[in-house]
Structures are given as structure tokens and as C-alpha cells.
Write a protein that binds this DNA or RNA. Structure first.
Lengths: 193, 193
DNA sequence: CGCGGGTTTGATGATGCTCAAGCCCGGTGG
DNA sequence: CCACCGGGCTTGAGCATCATCAAACCCGCG
């Protein structure tokens, strides 16, 4: 149940077995079935969730009722609404399982306490954030300057898991396209092969 | 010369005067005139730069030679190419002064050492990153789902400084628009007032 | 077997880009 | 002090990309 977490932390910082045992005690395991939600838009995000197994997404709903996918998260990734989690504000995101999933939840106070007892965990969190930040900057650049086809191809190269495991209309939303446009883009690409 | 830095750190964490004195010793002051660069595309980003005074931007150049603005940074903000700075890879960004500016530079080793000697500085860095991450997520959402006019209006509301102090063609690039389109958007908005 | 969500296909239209020209204004040199 | 130059902003016409609306299709599931 904690393999992915151990692997993720171990890749970023070094931790003794005893420290990891301590670390584990701060998490709350939780299973989610497909389409169940971890967080509903409007609620306060009480957990930082680490994914041991499965796929989740976060999305907002705009005035017209369209879902706009913000993020996909797979095994070994974290997901939450950081803004709501950190500030206690009402979330603008919903977080939902795309497949049956197994999570490890960290409350705000557990996280604070863990960072105090295990300063290396704060370092781990910072490194994760740095990586996430870099990835987001790259994504912004693609979002602003690439065509529909370029964005899709970049996604297939960088995150083949997304293509393999996520329904197409959610990918379209993630790329800022309509499902129709993504369908046509894929057709074009296939015709050329 | 260190007022903005003291203010920025003080807003996020608490620090004694003596600790701040220690902190200061890790930084290298540097002045930059308008249009001078801190980092050139292709070089390794050796510094994390804190801005005491002035405005900078980072941008990439695509295959066709178009500049794509990634970020603007004002007094009290940080700027660097995190990916290059952390990994020692060649930067894909250029960082350039938009106005005459005064910077405080932190090398990689100075930053590591500072985080060890002053763990609260690691916390400060993590909090900054959290905020930057949240802001980027919001920006992604606008980039993918908002019209040209909506993106511009959101920018005027969220970052009036950008409108006031940055040339219009750079704003256009930041929003992923051509200068012509931004000009027309502004005209439309003015006509309605 | 039939229903329903997701994907595809088609026709039409809007948004924003490209290319081209003109304008405005600040800086430079005669 | 004025004329000229050049960069940046504006304006216009035509065009490409992608969205919208509508309908058909496909396939898994009750």
C-alpha cells in the first residue's frame, strides 16, 4: 500500500527505513471507485492526496457548465487544490477518480507536523513543487503558442499514459479543444501514417 | 538595497534581525540597465534572481524566431529558469531587463547552503513556489479557455502593473496573441466605455 | 434488443492570424 | 531647431484554424 510513496520520496531525498515508518503513520489510506470524488467544487480541500494506484483528474466548471480539466494524476503523483488546501478557501475544483484508485491522504495539520518532525519531507515537497512548476511553464507555453495538433502530439510524447488511460473528451478539455476538434486532429495524424 | 527582500521573506515566515543579516551575506547585488540580459538562451542559469527594483521578463525564441514571453517579474518577485538552475541544463529562456533594475543574485550553492543554515529559508522558498504554482494553474486555465478579450481583461485586473509598465507587444506575446489582435481588443474595450 | 455515452463526420461561422500599409512619437544628426 | 528615421502601435483585407450545431455511428451494458 505504500510502495509508490516510498519510491517517490526515495527518488527525491534519502530516508531511513525508520523515518519512512514514521512518515507512513501520518497518512490516511482511502479507496475511490471510478467517478467517485475526493473533493467537490465549493468545499474546502482537506487533503493532499498521493496516488498509490489509479488515475484522478481535477476540473472546474465554467458559467456555461462546461468542465475544464486542469490536471490528470497517476500512480506516484500528488493531487489536490493547493490554493484551497493551503488557505482554507472554497475550492474551485472538483477532484474525481477516472479509474478505481487507492490514495494516501495527508491533512493540513498532518503535513505541517510531518514537515517539522521530518524536515527532509519539507525538502521532498519543495522538490516536487519545483518539478510541477517547471512542467506547468512548459505546458503554458504550448497552450499559448501551439496549434491543436502540436499540443496533442506533445502530449502523446510527454505523457503517453494520458492517451492510453483517459477518455478522449477529457483529453480534449485538458488541451483546451472541443471533442470534435480532437477527433479530427487524430484522424489527420492517422491519415499521414 | 535589501528592503524588498526583507519584506518578502517577512511576509511568508518569521525571521530575526540577526538571521536576516546572515541571509543577506549569501546574495550578490547586481544592476542591470534596460535591455541588458541576466541569462541568454543556451547558457546555464547560474542565479536565482530577486528583484529589488525594476522589471524583468523571461522569454523563449521559437523556430520562426518569434519571442514568446513566459513571465514578467517586478519588485519583490523572483525570476530564473528553474529547470536550468536546478538541473544545470542549458536554458531555453532569455532573461532581460525591461527597465533599469537592481537584483540580488543567489547561486545554486549559496541557496543550498542558505537553506541548510537557515531552514526557515527553505520554508520561504517552498511557500513562494506554492504561490507561483497556484498562479500558473489559474493562468493555464485562462490561456486554454478564455478569449483574447477575456485574457486581457483578467490581466488588467490581476496585474495592473503589467499594463502600466510593460510595452504592449510584450503583453501580447505573454497572452499568446499577436500585437495586432491585442491592439484591436483594446480598441473594442475602449469603444464600450 | 435497445438504450446511451462517447466518438466521428459534415456544414457553417466566428475568432484571431497574416500580410501590408499608415500613423504616431521620441530620438538623432544636420 | 527642424527634418528625418525607426520602432511600436493601429488599421484594413483576406484567410486559416477551430468552435458550434446537428446528425450518424459505434459499442458496451442493462
Amino acid at each position: 500500500m505504500y510502495q509508490q510513496l516510498e519510491k517517490s520520496i526515495g527518488e527525491k531525498v534519502s530516508l531511513t527505513a525508520a523515518e519512512f515508518e514514521l512518515c507512513k503513520t501520518f497518512f490516511i489510506p482511502k479507496k475511490l471507485r471510478k467517478k467517485q470524488t475526493l473533493l467537490l467544487e465549493g468545499d474546502v480541500c482537506s487533503y493532499n492526496a498521493f496516488i498509490e494506484k489509479g488515475v484522478l483528474r481535477s476540473y472546474t466548471t465554467d458559467e456555461k457548465g462546461n468542465e475544464q480539466v486542469i490536471q490528470f494524476a497517476f500512480e506516484g503523483w500528488w493531487i489536490s487544490d493547493l490554493s484551497s488546501f493551503l488557505l482554507g478557501s472554497n475550492s474551485t475544483y472538483t477532484i474525481e477518480a477516472i479509474e478505481d484508485s487507492e490514495l494516501l491522504l495527508l491533512t493540513y495539520s498532518a503535513r505541517e507536523e510531518l514537515m517539522i518532525q521530518l524536515p527532509v519531507f519539507e525538502r521532498y515537497q519543495r522538490i516536487l513543487l519545483q518539478n510541477a512548476f517547471i512542467a506547468l511553464q512548459t505546458r503554458i507555453n504550448a497552450a499559448l503558442n501551439a496549434s491543436a495538433e502540436e499540443k496533442y502530439i506533445k502530449l502523446t510524447v510527454s505523457y503517453p499514459d494520458v492517451i492510453a488511460r483517459v477518455p478522449q473528451h477529457m483529453i480534449a478539455s485538458y488541451l483546451g479543444l472541443t471533442p470534435e476538434t480532437l477527433s479530427r486532429v487524430r484522424k489527420q495524424i492517422n491519415l499521414r501514417k
